[in-house]
Design a protein around this nucleic acid. Structure first.
Lengths: 217, 217
DNA sequence: CGTAGCTTGTGACTTTGTGCACAAGCTGGG
DNA sequence: CCCAGCTTGTGCACAAAGTCACAAGCTACG
């Protein structure tokens, strides 16, 4: 089919969604062709890196011209597996869970909210964004009704591993973990972690390096 | 002072906050000593990597014994520059901004919410988490009152660059960007990006690799 | 006081990622 | 039809990160 299907490096995979976002913007602007130079500028990276990244998807550019935006966008969606929606299920209706459920930014980009569940009976039935909180017991049913589903862990760190286990048992194949805790899953499950406090601490480090803070106390 | 102050690699810096979190947990459990092996297990990484990471901070371990948890925690806080609080200012009181402001998880970990600002006059004055939304014009005052401050961009992508410029002008030295857009800042400013949809797309990629989705349409 | 048993810190090596530089190849104009 | 001017795709050299394996050094115990 694709001729040569070389393995795409992790570093490249991490950049593909950024290119995807840019391509969508370009289509909106009715721009039909783009050079690696321009793409690199819009993504804030090196042009050679853009070309190398895109070359892993196949040979979709035209020398002397550049890349056809529509075609590249199609191939990019194909490569990322976002040709169809991936519903998400949020576990945990605390501050963070409600925040994520309310945030419409997912749905727009192909990740509609399939539901929110919580172990706390007093939260079940309350409205959160566009849905009502359902009991943990409904998780399996919810997942099976929408497969494939991405699970989002928005619970305290202490129960993150248990929740991950339940998500896997319910048939979820990809998990995004917002809880500040290590979670391990079987190798067939994809897992990524986002920790907001961690990001702030990294910023703190680099800023402290530049200008050691004088004592405010 | 510290004898040898070798530059800490970016990859190591990104892991330090994870070690910090683990050390705090260990202190809570009244555990006074920890080996690189155990730390590695808790962090989900290789033990040699833990030792190399920690060695960048200085020689704080004892051969045959391990690391003193309290002492290592102190040094870690020192290295990360989180010995004092870093107030954060959120720009944008839309879904994401309100979500972040409501989420208490920052404050607990040394990043108290200093304020929320928004350009939309109709949002100004409304309550968001523990504070009231203030006009963009108050940004400088807010930042100056709490320096040093971390700025959080929680606006639509289209205005992210403009907001970043205003944050820098107001005296913010570190920025966490949640908007799906490229933002550039002067080299003296630290900048990191978190894009939730992007994380989901990366998950989508790895999952598609494993098991190409059958057409659901 | 000597030795057995750990655990650290690090040198050497492997793997992964980045960036340059240039041949290959397309297009448009004369 | 040919050539000038771009832009891609990639080989190669270098840089960063990760891993292994082991000497150095501490502790506990007899």
């Amino acid at each position: 089919m694709d001729g040569h299907a070389r393995r795409i490096p992790d570093a490249t995979v991490a950049r593909l969604p950024e290119y995807l976002r840019i391509l969508v913007d370009l289509v909106d602007q009715r721009i039909t062709t783009v050079s690696s130079e321009r793409l690199a500028e819009l993504a804030g990276v090196n042009a050679a890196k853009v070309r190398k990244d895109l070359s892993y998807l196949g040979t979709y550019g035209t020398r002397g011209v550049g890349y056809d935006v529509d075609y590249l966008l199609f191939q990019m969606r194909q490569a990322l597996g976002v040709t169809q929606d991936w519903p998400v299920v949020v576990v945990g209706a605390g501050n963070l869970g409600r925040a994520l459920a309310n945030y419409g930014g997912f749905g727009d980009r192909g990740f509609p909210l399939a539901g929110v569940v919580d172990a706390d009976e007093t939260k079940v039935g309350t409205r959160v964004g566009p849905v009502e909180v359902r009991p943990m017991g409904d998780l399996k049913e919810l997942v099976q009704a929408h497969r494939p589903v991405i699970g989002i862990i928005a619970t305290p760190g202490a129960v993150a591993q248990q929740v991950a286990d339940e998500l896997v048992a319910a048939g979820v194949t990809a998990i995004l973990n917002f809880a500040p805790a290590l979670v391990t899953v079987p190798p067939s499950i994809s897992l990524r972690k986002v920790d907001l406090a961690l990001e702030l601490q990294i910023l703190s480090f680099y800023q402290s390096q530049r200008e050691p803070r004088r004592d405010t106390a």
